[in-house]
């Protein structure tokens, strides 16, 4: 069965750090419940993001997304807020790994960020490696994740993968 992600675009710029996604300050104030940190997601970039985002929405950003801290709260909170995928020209590596590990699809695409505007409709064919901006009629190809990572993403993260298969992926 094909895996298609479809949602509205949230357009962001270059160098969106994990501090932008969730400031480190809140870890020690609210650390025990991820849900309590939701109101602070993108606090400085898109105030009230958690109320405005709809399930399946897609973040479209420029270069260097996920810069900075290794805090896994960042991808987890995006997923918890309802974000369906993140498309960027490039990702910092810890964020990229964390996103896969917790089941948030991350797509490296060069052209889509340049043509996308806020609210455009985006579709992603995860297995086919095709991302489309439906509103602008622009298509880009990406290297689909290798089968085991695709399976992890589809399961909703590595924990769900291990529970489902009762074994480690490697």
């Amino acid at each position: 069965m094909a895996w298609i992600i479809r949602g509205r675009a949230w357009r962001l710029g270059d160098n969106i750090s994990t501090d932008h996604i969730i400031s480190g300050k809140y870890k020690f104030a609210k650390i025990n419940k991820l849900e309590d940190m939701l109101p602070y997601v993108f606090e400085e970039v898109i105030p009230g993001f958690y109320k405005k985002v709809q399930p399946g929405d897609v973040i479209v950003a420029g270069r260097g997304f996920g810069y900075g801290s290794s805090r896994e709260h960042a991808p987890r909170l995006l997923k918890l807020a309802g974000v369906g995928a993140v498309i960027a020209k490039s990702f910092h590596r810890i964020f990229y790994r964390n996103a896969i590990n917790i089941g948030l699809p991350v797509i490296v695409a060069e052209r889509i960020p340049d043509v996308t505007q806020q609210g455009d409709t985006i579709t992603i064919d995860m297995e086919g490696g095709v991302v489309r901006n439906e509103t602008r009629g622009v298509e880009d190809r990406f290297q689909p994740p290798p089968p085991v990572l695709l399976e992890i993403l589809r399961a909703g993260g590595i924990v769900e993968y291990i529970k489902r298969n009762n074994r480690l992926p490697w």
Binding site: R71, I94, R97, I158, L168
Partner: peptide, 10 residues
């Protein structure tokens, strides 16, 4: 090198 919490658990 740095990793996230899930990688650390693994």
């Amino acid at each position: 090198t740095g990793v996230g919490s899930t990688d650390a658990a693994l």
